[in-house]
Amino acid sequence: MARTKAFDPDAALQAALELFWLRGYEATSMADLVEHLGIARASIYATFGSKHELYLKSLERYSRLLDPALIDELSQPGPALPAVQGLVTRFAEEAAGDDLGRGCFITNTAAELAAHDQHAARRVEASWTVLETALTTALTRARAQGELPADRDPRALARMLLVLMQGLRVMGKSGHDPERLRDAARQALELLG
């Protein structure tokens, strides 16, 4: 008879996500994972595969939780520009108040792994594509509704905002002056109006 797992794989994956998010991939050892998850190394391997596979599953979970919320936030009925402005402002405020220095798990992965890990790079790119597409769609709606000048390119603006938002997260994680982040966000938002 097969043995049943003595732990909740979903809870273990969430715990791994939190540890990787806080420490990063390289700074998290298998011993750290065993201790933090409270399960044996063999169980981690049997359930999730290697440390790298567990990291990628954690990253995928993070995206599954985050990406739909961003899409929902930008696709509410009514005026679209306030939703875009609110999202950019929220990113700036989160970055300015990042007391834990965690940043964004996607951005952290881009900085730590994407240049030399094609699997991580694909997951980062997929998440950024979701955000860029949601921003483009919202800005296209804003232009169609007369909230954005007709000569503005929604896709180019979305790309600029994506780069800005990721930059806010990097600078917030590194402890830069919160007003610098807020000023950058305000200047970017002025380009929309």
Rank of each mutant, 00 (worst) to 15 (best):
129 T>D: 12
135 L>C: 06
59 L>F: 08
28 T>Q: 01
119 H>C: 02
186 R>M: 11
115 A>I: 05
105 F>E: 02
75 S>W: 06
116 H>F: 01
71 I>G: 00
77 P>Y: 05
106 I>Q: 11
62 Y>W: 12
11 A>C: 01
48 F>A: 05
93 E>A: 14
83 A>F: 00
126 A>S: 05
15 A>Y: 01
72 D>Y: 06
160 M>L: 13
59 L>V: 08
64 R>V: 10
96 A>F: 03
16 A>C: 02
193 G>T: 14
135 L>W: 07
76 Q>N: 07
129 T>N: 11
190 E>R: 07
164 L>M: 10
153 D>H: 08
133 T>D: 12
38 G>I: 05
158 A>M: 02
180 R>S: 08
100 L>Q: 11
114 A>R: 03
122 R>D: 14
11 A>N: 01
191 L>A: 10
47 T>R: 03
55 Y>R: 06
97 G>L: 09
189 L>G: 08
156 A>C: 00
151 D>W: 09
124 V>T: 09
60 E>L: 06
166 Q>K: 12
62 Y>Q: 05
7 F>K: 11
182 R>L: 13
49 G>Q: 10
57 K>L: 11
171 M>C: 10
92 A>I: 10
54 L>I: 04
83 A>I: 00
35 E>D: 14
23 R>H: 09
32 D>W: 08
179 E>N: 13
88 V>D: 05
88 V>C: 05
143 R>Q: 11
186 R>G: 10
1 M>A: 15
17 L>Y: 07
106 I>V: 15
25 Y>F: 15
123 R>Y: 07
151 D>G: 02
34 V>C: 07
65 L>Y: 12
35 E>G: 06
170 V>C: 05
95 A>H: 06
29 S>E: 12
2 A>R: 12
173 K>M: 13
110 A>C: 00
177 D>T: 09
88 V>R: 04
107 T>C: 12
133 T>W: 04
42 A>Q: 13
190 E>K: 05
117 D>P: 06
104 C>E: 09
114 A>S: 11
76 Q>V: 12
151 D>F: 08
49 G>E: 10
10 D>G: 12
171 M>D: 12
42 A>V: 11
23 R>D: 08
43 S>L: 06
140 T>S: 15
182 R>M: 08
37 L>E: 01
181 L>M: 09
131 L>G: 01
106 I>W: 12
56 L>D: 07
167 G>K: 15
95 A>G: 09
85 Q>F: 00
118 Q>M: 04
58 S>A: 15
172 G>A: 09
91 F>W: 14
19 L>E: 09
6 A>V: 13
98 D>Q: 04
84 V>R: 03
32 D>E: 08
109 T>S: 08
154 P>M: 03
106 I>P: 08
84 V>Y: 03
119 H>I: 02
37 L>T: 05
22 L>K: 13
159 R>C: 01
86 G>H: 02
55 Y>K: 05
149 P>K: 09
143 R>Y: 04
36 H>W: 12
182 R>V: 15
167 G>V: 15
103 G>R: 08
139 L>C: 13
28 T>L: 01
149 P>E: 10
110 A>E: 05
178 P>V: 02
60 E>Y: 00
8 D>V: 06
13 L>S: 06
132 E>T: 12
143 R>N: 03
127 S>D: 03
86 G>P: 02
116 H>A: 07
160 M>S: 14
44 I>Y: 02
34 V>D: 09
112 E>C: 10
166 Q>F: 07
99 D>R: 08
64 R>A: 15
101 G>E: 04
